[in-house]
């Protein structure tokens, strides 16, 4: 008895929410944005946190509009949350991470009026905006810098979970390093084969020490929270490390050579902003160096480590990639690092 009453109340409420959202979106001034973080969690110091810091939080601070956030713990929950958000009239809904692709596909088909923005993967639905990044281009740049900085002519790469997306970082880095110094050795390790590989700093530190024993003196981590262990180990040994996703230069000033930033927060922010301005459009956005989607970070924390000559060289390579003179091979195009 009570449950049917509750049911009716909730149905009425959600109906009211939906209708109010519809009338609001007709005005195209107000949006009811939402975000579903990756299952690594919102505060992973890296990927999801960049979405929060530079996207969600920024949008909330600037506009005062609340962004509804959801943190799923398993894949079934991702779809549940996406659908729930759409049902309650939230739009656009930003889905963070490649593993949400199937869920976005299902939710977008079930709620054709809602707008979804998927980060890091492509789903061909008419109401999905897909934002993918050319991580290999940014990694190429930091590879060039690593090779210039290295005295031993050995550099290292520590990846997170062993999936093609992460190999794309490693492959771009390797190409950059070899472009700069053809006979350089690039040591590469993946942390693991489960999502836990993105949150295992002690294993990251272990791999870093092993690579340093092998002579590496610059190590690039593309491993989410695992990277914190990599940076720490490099700092302890007085070697250099390269951060990823967020600008992590400030973590260990003096040993953080640079960071390969991937502007996922910016993509999130732009999606909300576009919806607010009524210019949100579905389709695929490929964010490379030219679009400012990936870049290398230079600020007051690493200025002392990067000489003027290095900076000029990296910016020169960057211009060449943008101009198309250097084509960086994308690991995910053929699942191999052949270049």
């Amino acid at each position: 008895m009570q449950s049917t009453l509750l049911n009716k109340m909730v149905k009425g409420l959600s109906l009211a929410l939906v209708t109010s959202a519809v009338s609001l979106s007709a005005m195209a001034a107000d949006v009811a944005p939402a975000v579903v973080y990756s299952d690594a969690g919102k505060f992973d110091k890296s990927f999801s946190e960049a979405v929060w810091n530079n996207g969600v939080k920024r949008f909330m601070d600037e506009t005062g509009i609340e962004v509804k956030e959801a943190e799923p713990t398993n894949l079934a929950q991702v779809e549940q949350y996406l659908k729930r958000l759409a049902k309650r009239g939230h739009s656009p809904i930003v889905a963070v991470g490649f593993s949400q692709a199937n869920a976005v596909s299902a939710a977008a088909a079930a709620y054709p009026d809602a707008q979804f923005t998927l980060i890091d993967m492509v789903v061909p639905e008419p109401n999905v905006q897909n934002v993918v990044f050319k991580e290999h281009e940014g990694s190429f740049l930091v590879g060039v810098l690593a090779a210039m900085k290295s005295e031993s002519n050995v550099v290292g790469f520590v990846g997170g979970m062993d999936i093609p997306l992460i190999s794309r970082f490693g492959c771009g880095y390797e190409q950059g390093a070899k472009y700069q110094s053809a006979d350089i050795t690039v040591l590469q390790n993946m942390t693991g084969s489960t999502p836990a590989a993105f949150g295992n700093p002690s294993k990251g530190a272990e791999l870093t020490r092993t690579q340093m024993e092998g002579g590496a003196d610059v190590i690039f981590a593309a491993a989410g929270g695992t990277g914190n262990g990599v940076y720490q180990a490099a700092a302890d040994a007085g070697k250099y490390a390269i951060g990823v996703d967020s600008n992590q230069n400030h973590l260990h000033p003096g040993t953080m050579l640079t960071s390969m930033v991937k502007r996922v927060g910016e993509a999130t922010y732009q999606s909300y902003k576009a919806a607010q301005n009524g210019t949100w459009a579905p389709g695929v956005q490929v964010m490379g160096l030219a679009e400012g989607g990936v870049d290398w970070a230079i600020d007051e924390h690493n200025r002392g480590l990067v000489s003027a000559q290095m900076e000029a060289r990296v910016n020169d390579v960057k211009a060449k990639i943008i101009a198309g003179e250097i084509v960086v091979h994308d690991y995910m195009s053929d699942n191999a690092c052949s270049y």
Binding site: F98, A101, N102, M121, V122, M161, D162, I163, P164, L165, G192, S193, T194, M332, N335
Partner: peptide, 25 residues
């Protein structure tokens, strides 16, 4: 457990992956 995870990643990335798709499934 770890062997299973490693094996499955290998199979889903290299062997069983849907042709033309990037997602390991």
């Amino acid at each position: 457990n770890f062997l299973a995870a490693t094996l499955m990643v290998y199979l889903l990335v290299k062997v069983l992956r849907e042709p033309g798709k990037m997602t390991p499934q």
